[in-house]
């Protein structure tokens, strides 16, 4: 392989027909991405500086008011903080629940069982997100499955009133994104050499010390990657808060959705989307070195 690479690659590179082949092979895919991702984002950026949709018969001018609205009104600031808090809490819970799970999978279970269990953890993540969120309504609703179960466990337990609360949104989102954290932690945990752990143990390190000094630091890339990959979609979520949060489910995502589907203030929606996108890009930029290491 290595030999053939060095002998054939330079010859190929200098063939003039290669440029045409490359263009022919990659062109269609990237033209598609330009039309569906790049141009829409550019159009949205443009819209975010307008006072109205630039259609014939509409009175519109260039303005900064959509952005100044965000920075001057407390409503949007509270909203932003609420969304960031939600993203942080969901990522934290996913770590608390998912890390031990990834550890058990990577370090204590072997062979076919590991493969089967791993698949069982990952598969719900790829199945329909909307339906998984919706299925929680049946568990959380008043007199639903959870309350009945608790009542059966502890008679006279009473009601929890979880449905249409902030907590319900957190539960639904943790359920949605937990497999992400398990996946990324599992990948970095499985690269830790077992001999390293055994060596530390044999020299008298306690389990806690091993966890704190070896396992956690070495799996940090996976933890951070998982947290970022959860945080980003969560701050942009709108369907989960709508279904599980009801009136308590107002976040930046739901307000953006409103601008496009019910209020029809597209320029404001575009500006809010761009502020959200800016947050996302800052997060990716900050964690870029760790993310690269994790992949």
């Amino acid at each position: 392989m290595a030999v053939s690479d060095t002998t054939t690659a330079p010859i190929r590179r200098h063939r003039p027909s290669n440029a045409r082949s490359i263009l022919g092979l990659t062109g269609p895919a990237y033209l598609w991405l330009v039309i569906t991702i790049l141009l829409p984002l550019a159009a949205m950026f443009y819209f975010s500086f307008l006072s109205d949709v630039p259609l014939p018969g509409r009175d519109w001018q260039v303005t900064l008011s959509n952005y100044t609205a965000f920075f001057q009104q407390d409503f949007y600031r509270t909203l932003m903080l609420r969304s960031l808090r939600l993203g942080f809490e969901v990522a934290l819970w996913c770590f608390v629940i998912g890390f031990p799970c990834a550890y058990v999978l990577a370090k204590t279970i072997k062979g076919r069982w590991r493969e089967a269990l791993f698949l069982m953890v990952i598969i719900p993540f790829w199945s329909n997100a909307l339906i998984r969120v919706f299925s929680w309504t049946m568990v959380l609703r008043g007199n639903g499955i959870l309350e009945r179960f608790l009542d059966w466990l502890i008679p006279g337990f009473g009601s929890l009133n979880l449905m249409f609360t902030y907590e319900a949104v957190v539960i639904g989102l943790v359920h949605s994104y937990l497999p992400y954290m398990i996946l990324t932690c599992y990948i970095s945990l499985s690269t830790i050499d077992d001999d390293l752990i055994d060596a530390a143990r044999s020299m008298g390190a306690s389990r806690l010390t091993v966890l704190r000094r070896i396992i956690l630091p070495l799996s940090m890339p996976g933890i951070v990657a998982g947290a970022v990959l959860i945080f980003v979609p969560v701050i942009g979520s709108f369907m989960e808060p709508r279904i599980l949060g009801g009136r308590e489910g107002t976040f930046l995502g739901t307000v953006i959705e409103d601008q496009f589907t019910s209020v029809f203030n597209w320029p404001l929606g575009a500006a809010l989307s761009f502020i959200l996108l800016a947050c996302v890009m800052v997060i990716f930029a900050v964690f870029q070195p760790i993310l690269r290491r994790a992949s």
Partner: peptide
């Protein structure tokens, strides 16, 4: 080009979705 594959996966769908709505409608 390989890095350009990242945005469709990484940007929240809410943003790509609303951007497409706006661009497709307008264009």
């Amino acid at each position: 080009l390989q890095a350009a594959l990242f945005p469709p996966i990484a940007i929240p769908w809410l943003i790509t979705g609303t951007a497409m709505l706006l661009f497709f409608f307008w264009s």
